[in-house]
Amino acid sequence: MGEKTDVWQGTLALMVLKTLQTMGPLHGYGIARRIEQTSGNLLSLNYGTLYPALLKLEQEGSIASEWGTSDNNRKAKFYKLTRAGRKQLENEARDWEQAAAIVARFLSPAGEQA
């Protein structure tokens, strides 16, 4: 358990957006669990930090919220991706992949020789 990594600054939003894209409308607890599962339980998410992040995304218009009922019949606030959010996800995913690729080339032996 001690090996878990904290969520890097700035990546939480991207994870939230990606999760909502894959899963469709989901409540806060669901998003948190899904992020943990997707990371293969390697990420330790402080659930408390998730809500301000959701609020920020909502204020920026990337996601929208609505009260609804969960699978086990509980009242919960569901978040879903807006059109602006979809676009933001595309952009940020591309940026992230690019950044990751660049870092990867630095770390590979071939990159060192070049």
Partner: peptide
């Protein structure tokens, strides 16, 4: 309300 619903979901799990 949202915090409460979060807790309930988590507790149920």
């Amino acid at each position: 309300d949202e915090m409460e619903s979060h807790l309930q979901l988590h507790i149920a799990d």
